[in-house]
């Protein structure tokens, strides 16, 4: 069965969703990610959904769940790169993912994680001195 890869970058986990999510894939990701967080004791998770073009109420809820579960496990979670159409759909569905942190792109998301973990951030395209 196909799975969404979870990459480790130092103390962070990076999940890039490159394919259209279907229900089983989303649930598998939720299981895999929680396992990995516990195993690696990562301090931050970035979920990049910039390639996600379609979302329904189930996927929206699972995304919210993934973020909430990660936060429960003590991991800062940031969802990055949401497309306008997805944002409108989620709001219309009443799934505004309150409590989940968001950022425009991976770079901004990484900086957000660094800041919230108190670590200095180096690099990035428009990093302010």
């Amino acid at each position: 069965m196909e799975r969404i890869p979870i990459l480790q970058m130092g103390q962070f986990l990076l999940v890039t969703i490159q394919v259209d999510m279907h229900d089983r894939l989303a649930l598998a990701l939720q299981d895999d990610l929680t396992d990995r967080i516990v195993k690696t004791s990562a301090s931050g998770v970035l979920i990049d959904i910039s390639s996600l073009e379609i979302v329904d109420s189930f996927i929206g809820r699972v995304l919210g769940n993934i973020a909430t579960v990660s936060q429960l496990l003590g991991t800062e979670t940031v969802i990055v790169g949401m497309q306008p159409a997805i944002a409108i759909t989620l709001v219309e569905l009443g799934l505004s993912l309150s409590g989940v942190r968001t950022a425009a792109n991976i770079d901004a998301g990484m900086r957000l994680l660094q800041i919230s973990l108190g670590a200095p951030f180096h690099g990035g395209l428009d990093a302010n001195p």
Binding site: M82, P84, E92, S96, L97, T102, A103, A108, G109
Partner: peptide
């Protein structure tokens, strides 16, 4: 409120 929420989801 909807617009604000949607923008927030996009990290703005």
């Amino acid at each position: 409120l909807k617009t604000v929420e949607a923008a927030r989801l996009m990290g703005t």
